[in-house]
Amino acid sequence: MSLVSLSNVSVRYGRLTAVRGVTFTLAEGEILFITGPNGAGKSSLLRAIAGVTPPAGGRIDFADHDITGRAPEDIARLGLSMVPEGRDVFGSLTIEENLMVGTGMHARERSWKARAANELEAVYATFPILKERRHTQAGLLSGGQQQMLVIGRALMTNPRLVAIDEPSLGLAPNITDQVYERLITLRAERRLTLLIVEQSSTRAMMVGGRMMLMRGGEILLDGDARALGQSEAMQAAYFGYGEH
């Protein structure tokens, strides 16, 4: 049973086509890395799925709903949590306030407050540093702490899919290690489906799972992360050898 399914999705900015006819499905519980050089269209694809940049063509389904062209808040409410490139913390809000922003989507349900409190404790258990600094303004955190905050914030809504755009961007390798360690644990604990965008295939090969290579707005390769990562086809496709 697929959780996400894209069919022939394209994204345009004026006359520039950033994503061309992308088609794939993602099963519940799967982990998928989308890698590819700068400008490949990875972020555009993720923003299209999250509803931030509506696709110019094609169809996107999530959790048995056609979400093509739906508003980002509606898509979020179906259980898709997006962590955009560049860690968009609300800098003037405290850590705890940042974490609470997303819990409003369950405010209609009974006992949502108790649930939000539970989620908060769960996130704090995963990222103890956030609990320590819970009343600190998020803008004052280091890059690594901000990355943990946005991942924690994405989890607060109890999502089915978490899509993360370049979690390692601007982080020291050992901090990136920590972030990934937590992600992998969380995925196991919660049966999360993960869609992670990274420029390089290094992380995908370490973590394992499925990997796709994107370049020029298209998916060129799709397969097992470790097998693909070592293949020559990957090298060739990434750098575009033998084309011209």
């Binding site: 999250a50 508003a71 980002p72 979020a76 609300f90 800098g91 306030e97 922003v101 409003g104 809504t157």
Partner: peptide, 24 residues
Amino acid sequence: TRFGLEMRAAAENFTMARMLGVRA
């Protein structure tokens, strides 16, 4: 208040707030 929190978040980064389910 909940609504106040959503307003402050939206004032800072509207798109991010919407991605967290805040109704624009």
